[in-house]
Write a protein that binds this DNA or RNA. Structure first.
Length: 424
RNA sequence: GGCAGGUUGCCCGAGUGGCCAAAGGGAGCGGUCUGUAAAACCGUCGGCACAGCCUACGUAGGUUCGAACCCUACACCUGCCA
Protein backbone atom coordinates (compact mmCIF):
# COMPACT_ATOMS: atom_id res chain seq x y z
CA UNK A 1 0.00 0.00 0.00
CA UNK A 2 1.28 3.41 -0.92
CA UNK A 3 1.38 5.60 2.11
CA UNK A 4 -0.44 8.87 1.98
CA UNK A 5 2.72 10.74 2.86
CA UNK A 6 4.32 9.48 -0.32
CA UNK A 7 1.19 10.23 -2.26
CA UNK A 8 1.15 13.72 -0.88
CA UNK A 9 4.79 14.25 -1.67
CA UNK A 10 4.16 13.22 -5.24
CA UNK A 11 0.92 15.08 -5.63
CA UNK A 12 1.30 17.44 -8.56
CA UNK A 13 0.52 21.03 -7.87
CA UNK A 14 -0.07 20.22 -4.21
CA UNK A 15 0.82 22.78 -1.64
CA UNK A 16 4.32 22.30 -0.29
CA UNK A 17 4.36 19.85 2.60
CA UNK A 18 0.62 19.71 2.61
CA UNK A 19 0.01 16.02 2.98
CA UNK A 20 -3.34 16.89 4.47
CA UNK A 21 -6.50 17.23 2.47
CA UNK A 22 -10.20 16.61 2.65
CA UNK A 23 -12.43 15.49 -0.15
CA UNK A 24 -16.20 15.48 0.14
CA UNK A 25 -17.97 12.48 -1.33
CA UNK A 26 -21.70 11.92 -1.34
CA UNK A 27 -24.07 14.13 0.64
CA UNK A 28 -27.19 13.27 2.56
CA UNK A 29 -30.22 14.54 0.66
CA UNK A 30 -31.93 16.50 3.36
CA UNK A 31 -29.12 17.12 5.83
CA UNK A 32 -25.63 18.41 6.38
CA UNK A 33 -24.03 14.98 6.48
CA UNK A 34 -21.68 13.60 3.87
CA UNK A 35 -19.12 10.96 3.17
CA UNK A 36 -15.58 12.05 2.57
CA UNK A 37 -11.95 11.26 2.79
CA UNK A 38 -9.23 12.87 4.85
CA UNK A 39 -5.70 12.30 3.61
CA UNK A 40 -2.87 12.58 6.13
CA UNK A 41 0.84 11.86 5.97
CA UNK A 42 0.10 8.56 7.67
CA UNK A 43 -2.71 7.47 5.44
CA UNK A 44 -6.34 8.19 4.61
CA UNK A 45 -9.43 8.25 6.76
CA UNK A 46 -12.74 7.51 5.13
CA UNK A 47 -15.42 9.58 6.79
CA UNK A 48 -17.62 9.56 8.71
CA UNK A 49 -15.19 7.73 10.98
CA UNK A 50 -14.82 6.93 14.63
CA UNK A 51 -11.38 7.69 16.02
CA UNK A 52 -10.39 5.44 18.90
CA UNK A 53 -9.02 7.18 21.99
CA UNK A 54 -5.60 6.30 23.33
CA UNK A 55 -5.04 9.13 25.77
CA UNK A 56 -1.59 8.18 26.98
CA UNK A 57 -0.36 6.80 23.67
CA UNK A 58 -2.09 3.51 24.29
CA UNK A 59 -5.63 2.38 23.86
CA UNK A 60 -6.11 0.99 27.34
CA UNK A 61 -5.97 -2.79 27.60
CA UNK A 62 -5.45 -3.62 23.92
CA UNK A 63 -2.63 -4.05 21.42
CA UNK A 64 -2.41 -1.79 18.37
CA UNK A 65 -2.95 -4.93 16.28
CA UNK A 66 -6.35 -5.31 17.91
CA UNK A 67 -7.19 -1.69 17.24
CA UNK A 68 -6.33 -2.21 13.60
CA UNK A 69 -8.35 -5.44 13.52
CA UNK A 70 -11.31 -3.61 14.95
CA UNK A 71 -11.21 -1.43 11.86
CA UNK A 72 -10.03 1.79 13.48
CA UNK A 73 -8.55 4.23 11.01
CA UNK A 74 -7.02 6.61 13.54
CA UNK A 75 -6.16 7.01 17.21
CA UNK A 76 -6.38 10.13 19.36
CA UNK A 77 -4.02 10.87 22.26
CA UNK A 78 -3.86 13.74 24.72
CA UNK A 79 -1.30 16.53 24.97
CA UNK A 80 -1.83 17.14 28.67
CA UNK A 81 -1.27 13.52 29.66
CA UNK A 82 1.72 12.99 27.38
CA UNK A 83 3.20 16.30 28.51
CA UNK A 84 3.18 15.09 32.11
CA UNK A 85 4.35 11.64 31.16
CA UNK A 86 6.68 10.76 29.44
CA UNK A 87 7.17 14.33 28.17
CA UNK A 88 6.73 15.53 24.58
CA UNK A 89 10.49 15.58 23.99
CA UNK A 90 10.59 11.82 24.55
CA UNK A 91 7.79 11.24 22.06
CA UNK A 92 9.50 13.56 19.59
CA UNK A 93 12.79 11.72 19.97
CA UNK A 94 10.97 8.43 19.48
CA UNK A 95 9.88 9.63 16.07
CA UNK A 96 6.46 10.95 16.98
CA UNK A 97 3.34 9.57 18.55
CA UNK A 98 2.57 6.93 15.93
CA UNK A 99 6.08 5.57 15.87
CA UNK A 100 6.31 5.64 19.65
CA UNK A 101 3.11 3.66 20.20
CA UNK A 102 3.48 1.42 17.15
CA UNK A 103 0.43 2.83 15.39
CA UNK A 104 1.39 3.42 11.75
CA UNK A 105 -1.94 4.93 10.71
CA UNK A 106 -3.21 8.47 11.32
CA UNK A 107 -3.05 9.99 14.78
CA UNK A 108 -4.77 12.91 16.46
CA UNK A 109 -3.90 14.78 19.64
CA UNK A 110 -6.24 16.77 21.80
CA UNK A 111 -4.87 20.04 23.07
CA UNK A 112 -5.40 19.64 26.79
CA UNK A 113 -8.41 21.92 26.53
CA UNK A 114 -10.70 19.28 27.98
CA UNK A 115 -8.55 19.18 31.09
CA UNK A 116 -9.14 22.91 31.58
CA UNK A 117 -12.65 21.85 32.43
CA UNK A 118 -12.29 18.38 33.93
CA UNK A 119 -9.46 19.33 36.25
CA UNK A 120 -10.99 22.73 36.82
CA UNK A 121 -14.29 21.54 38.16
CA UNK A 122 -12.86 18.68 40.12
CA UNK A 123 -13.62 15.62 38.13
CA UNK A 124 -17.33 15.16 38.42
CA UNK A 125 -20.38 15.06 36.25
CA UNK A 126 -20.88 18.79 36.32
CA UNK A 127 -21.10 18.61 32.56
CA UNK A 128 -24.46 16.97 32.64
CA UNK A 129 -25.95 18.72 35.61
CA UNK A 130 -28.97 20.93 35.27
CA UNK A 131 -28.04 24.51 34.56
CA UNK A 132 -31.31 25.93 35.80
CA UNK A 133 -31.02 28.42 38.60
CA UNK A 134 -27.27 28.28 38.80
CA UNK A 135 -25.55 31.61 38.54
CA UNK A 136 -22.10 30.71 39.69
CA UNK A 137 -19.05 30.68 37.51
CA UNK A 138 -16.93 29.16 40.20
CA UNK A 139 -18.37 25.82 39.21
CA UNK A 140 -16.73 22.97 41.01
CA UNK A 141 -17.86 19.49 41.91
CA UNK A 142 -18.77 18.87 45.50
CA UNK A 143 -15.98 17.60 47.68
CA UNK A 144 -13.38 18.07 44.96
CA UNK A 145 -10.22 20.06 44.58
CA UNK A 146 -9.75 22.42 41.71
CA UNK A 147 -6.61 21.43 39.82
CA UNK A 148 -6.84 24.00 37.03
CA UNK A 149 -7.35 27.76 37.00
CA UNK A 150 -8.12 29.65 33.81
CA UNK A 151 -7.22 33.20 32.91
CA UNK A 152 -7.18 35.07 29.62
CA UNK A 153 -3.61 34.11 28.87
CA UNK A 154 -3.85 30.39 29.64
CA UNK A 155 -4.36 27.80 32.33
CA UNK A 156 -2.41 26.87 35.42
CA UNK A 157 -2.59 23.18 36.20
CA UNK A 158 -1.59 21.18 39.19
CA UNK A 159 -0.51 17.78 37.94
CA UNK A 160 -2.94 15.07 39.03
CA UNK A 161 0.06 12.73 39.16
CA UNK A 162 2.38 14.50 41.57
CA UNK A 163 1.06 17.96 42.32
CA UNK A 164 3.62 19.77 40.17
CA UNK A 165 2.49 23.16 38.94
CA UNK A 166 2.35 23.69 35.17
CA UNK A 167 1.24 26.44 32.86
CA UNK A 168 -0.51 25.81 29.55
CA UNK A 169 -1.01 28.58 27.02
CA UNK A 170 -2.03 28.27 23.38
CA UNK A 171 1.65 28.46 22.44
CA UNK A 172 2.64 25.77 24.94
CA UNK A 173 -0.08 23.43 23.71
CA UNK A 174 1.01 23.96 20.11
CA UNK A 175 4.63 23.29 20.94
CA UNK A 176 3.71 20.11 22.79
CA UNK A 177 1.47 18.92 19.99
CA UNK A 178 4.10 19.60 17.38
CA UNK A 179 6.54 17.54 19.38
CA UNK A 180 3.98 14.76 19.70
CA UNK A 181 3.73 14.84 15.95
CA UNK A 182 0.15 13.72 15.35
CA UNK A 183 -1.42 14.21 11.94
CA UNK A 184 -4.27 16.22 13.37
CA UNK A 185 -3.98 18.59 16.30
CA UNK A 186 -6.59 20.66 18.07
CA UNK A 187 -6.33 24.30 19.04
CA UNK A 188 -6.17 24.98 22.75
CA UNK A 189 -9.64 25.90 23.90
CA UNK A 190 -11.67 26.39 27.04
CA UNK A 191 -14.41 23.86 27.58
CA UNK A 192 -17.13 25.11 29.88
CA UNK A 193 -19.87 23.24 31.70
CA UNK A 194 -23.61 23.60 31.45
CA UNK A 195 -23.54 25.20 34.87
CA UNK A 196 -21.65 28.28 33.78
CA UNK A 197 -23.68 31.42 33.26
CA UNK A 198 -24.42 32.88 29.86
CA UNK A 199 -22.09 35.77 30.63
CA UNK A 200 -19.29 33.35 31.39
CA UNK A 201 -19.96 31.44 28.16
CA UNK A 202 -19.73 34.66 26.17
CA UNK A 203 -16.38 35.53 27.68
CA UNK A 204 -15.21 31.99 27.23
CA UNK A 205 -16.03 31.99 23.52
CA UNK A 206 -14.06 35.21 23.12
CA UNK A 207 -11.19 33.73 25.05
CA UNK A 208 -11.20 30.56 22.94
CA UNK A 209 -11.22 32.71 19.82
CA UNK A 210 -8.28 34.76 21.03
CA UNK A 211 -6.46 31.53 21.83
CA UNK A 212 -7.29 30.21 18.35
CA UNK A 213 -5.49 33.17 16.79
CA UNK A 214 -2.44 32.51 18.96
CA UNK A 215 -2.57 28.80 18.12
CA UNK A 216 -2.59 29.53 14.42
CA UNK A 217 0.35 31.91 14.73
CA UNK A 218 2.39 29.50 16.79
CA UNK A 219 1.39 26.62 14.54
CA UNK A 220 2.58 28.55 11.50
CA UNK A 221 5.89 29.33 13.17
CA UNK A 222 6.44 25.73 14.30
CA UNK A 223 5.47 24.32 10.92
CA UNK A 224 8.18 26.42 9.32
CA UNK A 225 10.67 25.56 12.05
CA UNK A 226 10.04 21.84 11.74
CA UNK A 227 10.22 21.82 7.99
CA UNK A 228 11.70 18.33 7.84
CA UNK A 229 8.70 16.79 9.62
CA UNK A 230 5.46 15.60 8.03
CA UNK A 231 2.77 18.27 7.95
CA UNK A 232 0.48 18.38 10.96
CA UNK A 233 -3.02 19.71 10.45
CA UNK A 234 -4.61 22.02 12.98
CA UNK A 235 -8.31 22.07 13.80
CA UNK A 236 -9.92 25.06 15.53
CA UNK A 237 -12.45 24.21 18.21
CA UNK A 238 -15.92 25.71 18.25
CA UNK A 239 -17.43 26.44 21.65
CA UNK A 240 -20.54 28.38 22.62
CA UNK A 241 -22.36 25.86 24.80
CA UNK A 242 -26.10 25.58 24.11
CA UNK A 243 -26.54 29.07 22.66
CA UNK A 244 -27.25 29.34 18.95
CA UNK A 245 -25.89 32.85 18.55
CA UNK A 246 -22.69 31.99 20.39
CA UNK A 247 -22.20 28.78 18.44
CA UNK A 248 -22.75 30.43 15.08
CA UNK A 249 -20.54 33.36 15.98
CA UNK A 250 -17.79 31.10 17.27
CA UNK A 251 -17.89 28.89 14.18
CA UNK A 252 -18.06 31.83 11.80
CA UNK A 253 -15.21 33.52 13.61
CA UNK A 254 -12.94 30.51 13.37
CA UNK A 255 -13.91 29.89 9.75
CA UNK A 256 -12.87 33.41 8.81
CA UNK A 257 -9.61 33.28 10.74
CA UNK A 258 -6.41 33.61 8.82
CA UNK A 259 -3.08 34.44 10.38
CA UNK A 260 -0.33 35.23 7.85
CA UNK A 261 -2.03 33.04 5.31
CA UNK A 262 -2.52 30.22 7.81
CA UNK A 263 -6.05 29.06 8.49
CA UNK A 264 -7.48 25.99 10.15
CA UNK A 265 -7.38 22.68 8.29
CA UNK A 266 -10.58 21.54 9.93
CA UNK A 267 -12.73 22.18 12.96
CA UNK A 268 -13.60 20.55 16.21
CA UNK A 269 -17.05 20.85 17.73
CA UNK A 270 -16.62 20.84 21.47
CA UNK A 271 -18.14 21.73 24.75
CA UNK A 272 -20.84 20.49 26.98
CA UNK A 273 -23.61 19.22 24.75
CA UNK A 274 -26.97 18.29 26.14
CA UNK A 275 -27.94 15.02 24.53
CA UNK A 276 -31.26 16.35 23.31
CA UNK A 277 -29.72 19.35 21.58
CA UNK A 278 -26.61 17.72 20.24
CA UNK A 279 -27.86 17.45 16.67
CA UNK A 280 -29.24 20.95 16.59
CA UNK A 281 -26.06 22.48 18.00
CA UNK A 282 -23.89 20.58 15.51
CA UNK A 283 -26.15 21.76 12.76
CA UNK A 284 -25.73 25.43 13.68
CA UNK A 285 -21.99 24.97 13.76
CA UNK A 286 -21.76 22.99 10.52
CA UNK A 287 -23.82 25.60 8.69
CA UNK A 288 -21.38 28.24 9.84
CA UNK A 289 -18.27 26.33 8.80
CA UNK A 290 -16.79 25.89 5.32
CA UNK A 291 -18.09 22.82 3.55
CA UNK A 292 -14.74 21.74 2.20
CA UNK A 293 -13.09 21.19 5.56
CA UNK A 294 -13.60 18.28 7.95
CA UNK A 295 -15.56 18.65 11.17
CA UNK A 296 -14.73 16.57 14.21
CA UNK A 297 -17.31 16.11 16.95
CA UNK A 298 -15.32 15.78 20.14
CA UNK A 299 -16.09 13.16 22.75
CA UNK A 300 -19.22 11.56 21.32
CA UNK A 301 -19.94 7.87 20.68
CA UNK A 302 -23.35 6.66 21.75
CA UNK A 303 -25.23 5.30 18.71
CA UNK A 304 -28.03 7.85 18.77
CA UNK A 305 -25.48 10.65 19.12
CA UNK A 306 -23.36 9.37 16.25
CA UNK A 307 -26.37 9.37 13.95
CA UNK A 308 -27.34 12.83 15.13
CA UNK A 309 -23.79 14.07 14.66
CA UNK A 310 -23.45 12.66 11.17
CA UNK A 311 -26.83 14.06 10.17
CA UNK A 312 -25.67 17.44 11.41
CA UNK A 313 -22.47 17.37 9.40
CA UNK A 314 -19.84 15.80 11.63
CA UNK A 315 -17.18 13.83 9.77
CA UNK A 316 -15.16 12.31 12.58
CA UNK A 317 -15.73 11.41 16.21
CA UNK A 318 -13.66 10.30 19.14
CA UNK A 319 -14.72 9.10 22.55
CA UNK A 320 -13.42 7.31 25.61
CA UNK A 321 -16.79 5.79 26.26
CA UNK A 322 -16.53 2.47 24.37
CA UNK A 323 -13.31 1.55 26.13
CA UNK A 324 -14.06 2.99 29.55
CA UNK A 325 -17.43 1.36 29.70
CA UNK A 326 -15.92 -1.92 28.48
CA UNK A 327 -13.46 -1.97 31.34
CA UNK A 328 -16.42 -1.76 33.68
CA UNK A 329 -18.31 -4.61 32.07
CA UNK A 330 -20.81 -2.80 29.84
CA UNK A 331 -21.27 -4.23 26.36
CA UNK A 332 -22.74 -2.48 23.33
CA UNK A 333 -24.95 -4.41 20.93
CA UNK A 334 -27.37 -3.52 18.17
CA UNK A 335 -30.10 -4.33 20.70
CA UNK A 336 -28.84 -1.95 23.34
CA UNK A 337 -26.24 -2.01 26.06
CA UNK A 338 -26.02 -4.50 28.90
CA UNK A 339 -23.67 -5.46 31.72
CA UNK A 340 -21.94 -8.83 31.31
CA UNK A 341 -21.31 -8.81 35.02
CA UNK A 342 -24.95 -9.55 35.56
CA UNK A 343 -25.98 -12.96 36.93
CA UNK A 344 -27.91 -13.68 33.74
CA UNK A 345 -24.57 -14.08 31.93
CA UNK A 346 -23.11 -16.62 34.31
CA UNK A 347 -24.12 -19.55 32.17
CA UNK A 348 -24.74 -17.77 28.89
CA UNK A 349 -22.57 -19.69 26.45
CA UNK A 350 -23.28 -17.32 23.60
CA UNK A 351 -21.19 -14.47 22.16
CA UNK A 352 -21.36 -10.99 23.65
CA UNK A 353 -23.37 -10.12 20.57
CA UNK A 354 -24.94 -12.65 18.27
CA UNK A 355 -23.50 -12.40 14.77
CA UNK A 356 -20.69 -10.01 15.72
CA UNK A 357 -17.46 -10.62 13.84
CA UNK A 358 -15.03 -9.24 16.38
CA UNK A 359 -12.25 -11.35 17.87
CA UNK A 360 -13.99 -11.55 21.21
CA UNK A 361 -17.34 -12.65 19.86
CA UNK A 362 -15.83 -15.21 17.49
CA UNK A 363 -13.82 -16.87 20.27
CA UNK A 364 -15.49 -16.36 23.64
CA UNK A 365 -18.83 -16.49 25.41
CA UNK A 366 -20.67 -14.15 27.73
CA UNK A 367 -20.16 -16.71 30.47
CA UNK A 368 -16.39 -16.53 30.00
CA UNK A 369 -16.36 -12.72 30.02
CA UNK A 370 -18.61 -12.81 33.08
CA UNK A 371 -16.12 -15.07 34.76
CA UNK A 372 -13.15 -12.87 33.82
CA UNK A 373 -14.84 -9.77 35.21
CA UNK A 374 -15.85 -11.52 38.40
CA UNK A 375 -12.33 -12.85 38.82
CA UNK A 376 -10.96 -9.40 38.07
CA UNK A 377 -8.76 -10.76 35.32
CA UNK A 378 -7.08 -8.26 32.99
CA UNK A 379 -8.26 -10.15 29.94
CA UNK A 380 -11.79 -9.06 30.76
CA UNK A 381 -10.90 -5.45 29.92
CA UNK A 382 -9.04 -6.49 26.81
CA UNK A 383 -11.81 -8.61 25.33
CA UNK A 384 -14.61 -6.23 26.25
CA UNK A 385 -12.69 -3.28 24.81
CA UNK A 386 -12.12 -5.11 21.54
CA UNK A 387 -15.84 -5.71 21.22
CA UNK A 388 -16.99 -2.19 22.11
CA UNK A 389 -14.45 -0.52 19.85
CA UNK A 390 -15.41 -2.85 17.03
CA UNK A 391 -19.05 -2.07 17.67
CA UNK A 392 -18.51 1.68 17.57
CA UNK A 393 -16.07 1.79 14.65
CA UNK A 394 -18.25 -0.52 12.58
CA UNK A 395 -21.38 1.39 13.43
CA UNK A 396 -19.89 4.56 11.98
CA UNK A 397 -18.58 2.56 9.03
CA UNK A 398 -22.09 1.31 8.37
CA UNK A 399 -23.43 4.84 8.63
CA UNK A 400 -20.87 5.88 6.02
CA UNK A 401 -21.98 3.03 3.78
CA UNK A 402 -25.62 4.02 4.17
CA UNK A 403 -24.83 7.56 3.03
CA UNK A 404 -22.92 6.22 0.07
CA UNK A 405 -25.98 4.21 -0.87
CA UNK A 406 -28.27 7.16 -0.35
CA UNK A 407 -30.06 5.35 2.46
CA UNK A 408 -28.97 7.23 5.55
CA UNK A 409 -32.37 8.33 6.82
CA UNK A 410 -33.88 4.85 6.56
CA UNK A 411 -30.86 3.25 8.11
CA UNK A 412 -30.98 5.68 11.03
CA UNK A 413 -34.64 5.01 11.70
CA UNK A 414 -34.24 1.28 11.42
CA UNK A 415 -31.07 1.06 13.48
CA UNK A 416 -32.15 3.31 16.31
CA UNK A 417 -35.59 1.74 16.40
CA UNK A 418 -33.98 -1.55 17.25
CA UNK A 419 -31.17 -0.17 19.40
CA UNK A 420 -33.32 2.03 21.59
CA UNK A 421 -36.13 -0.48 22.06
CA UNK A 422 -33.72 -3.25 22.99
CA UNK A 423 -32.04 -1.02 25.48
CA UNK A 424 -32.41 -2.09 29.06
C1' G B 1 -4.69 -32.45 83.53
C1' G B 2 -3.82 -26.85 84.68
C1' C B 3 -3.99 -21.67 83.14
C1' A B 4 -5.40 -17.96 79.59
C1' G B 5 -8.10 -16.35 75.35
C1' G B 6 -12.02 -17.07 71.97
C1' U B 7 -17.13 -18.53 69.47
C1' U B 8 -21.05 -11.98 65.98
C1' G B 9 -25.03 -11.77 59.91
C1' C B 10 -22.68 -15.76 53.30
C1' C B 11 -17.07 -14.80 54.84
C1' C B 12 -13.57 -11.66 57.67
C1' G B 13 -14.26 -8.40 61.59
C1' A B 14 -15.89 -4.09 65.27
C1' G B 15 -19.17 -3.79 69.24
C1' U B 16 -18.97 -5.42 76.31
C1' G B 17 -26.38 -3.20 79.60
C1' G B 18 -30.79 0.67 76.26
C1' C B 19 -28.97 5.41 70.77
C1' C B 20 -27.91 -2.55 67.82
C1' A B 21 -30.99 -5.77 62.68
C1' A B 22 -25.59 -4.81 64.93
C1' A B 23 -19.46 -0.24 62.43
C1' G B 24 -15.98 -1.48 58.55
C1' G B 25 -14.20 -4.69 54.64
C1' G B 26 -15.10 -8.74 51.23
C1' A B 27 -18.49 -11.70 48.48
C1' G B 28 -23.40 -11.41 46.27
C1' C B 29 -27.14 -8.46 43.60
C1' G B 30 -28.34 -4.03 40.53
C1' G B 31 -26.84 0.42 38.14
C1' U B 32 -23.71 4.52 36.14
C1' C B 33 -19.88 6.15 32.81
C1' U B 34 -19.69 10.78 26.00
C1' G B 35 -12.35 15.52 23.60
C1' U B 36 -9.97 9.39 30.34
C1' A B 37 -7.34 12.26 37.61
C1' A B 38 -11.62 5.81 36.04
C1' A B 39 -9.29 -2.13 35.59
C1' A B 40 -13.52 3.66 38.60
C1' C B 41 -17.85 5.07 41.11
C1' C B 42 -22.91 4.64 43.21
C1' G B 43 -26.90 1.88 45.39
C1' U B 44 -28.42 -2.53 47.85
C1' C B 45 -27.21 -6.24 51.01
C1' G B 46 -31.89 -11.26 57.68
C1' G B 47 -37.41 -11.93 56.75
C1' C B 48 -42.25 -9.95 56.25
C1' A B 49 -48.71 -8.27 55.59
C1' C B 50 -42.32 -2.97 56.13
C1' A B 51 -43.34 4.75 60.15
C1' G B 52 -44.46 -1.87 62.59
C1' C B 53 -43.51 -6.85 63.62
C1' C B 54 -40.73 -11.50 63.55
C1' U B 55 -36.09 -14.07 63.67
C1' A B 56 -30.92 -13.30 64.96
C1' C B 57 -24.68 -12.37 67.90
C1' G B 58 -22.08 -21.16 69.85
C1' U B 59 -26.15 -24.12 73.01
C1' A B 60 -29.28 -24.15 77.47
C1' G B 61 -30.73 -21.56 81.63
C1' G B 62 -30.49 -17.09 84.81
C1' U B 63 -30.03 -11.64 86.50
C1' U B 64 -32.48 -7.06 84.75
C1' C B 65 -37.83 -2.68 83.13
C1' G B 66 -34.25 -3.95 79.15
C1' A B 67 -28.80 -8.59 77.24
C1' A B 68 -24.62 -9.61 71.38
C1' C B 69 -22.85 -7.26 75.82
C1' C B 70 -23.52 -9.46 83.13
C1' C B 71 -23.86 -14.66 85.77
C1' U B 72 -24.03 -20.33 85.53
C1' A B 73 -23.50 -24.87 82.93
C1' C B 74 -22.31 -27.32 78.52
C1' A B 75 -20.04 -27.76 73.51
C1' C B 76 -16.27 -26.56 70.26
C1' C B 77 -11.65 -23.73 68.84
C1' U B 78 -6.72 -21.39 70.03
C1' G B 79 -2.17 -20.41 72.87
C1' C B 80 1.05 -21.49 77.03
C1' C B 81 2.42 -24.94 81.04
C1' A B 82 2.71 -30.41 82.49
Amino acid sequence: MTTASEAAALAPGGEARSGFSFTVGRRIDDGLGRTGRIDTPHGPIDTPAFVVVGTKATVKAVLPESIAAVGAQAVLANAYHLFLQPGPDVVDAAGGLGQFMNWPSPTFTDSGGFQVMSLGVGFKKVLAMDAAGVADDEVIAEGSTRLAHVDDDGVTFVSHLNGDRHRFTPEVSMRIQHQLGADVMFAFDELTTLKNTRAYQENSVDRTHAWAIRCLAEHRRLTAEREHKPYQALFGVVQGAQYEDLRRAAAGGLAALEVDGQSFDGYGIGGALEKENLGRICGWVSESLPEDKPRHLLGISEPEDLFAGVAAGADTFDCVNPSRVARNGAIYTADGRYNVTTAACRRAFTPLEEGCGCYTCTHYTRAYLHHLFKAKEMLASTLATIHNEWFTVRLVDSIRASIAEGAFADYRTEYLGRYLSGRR
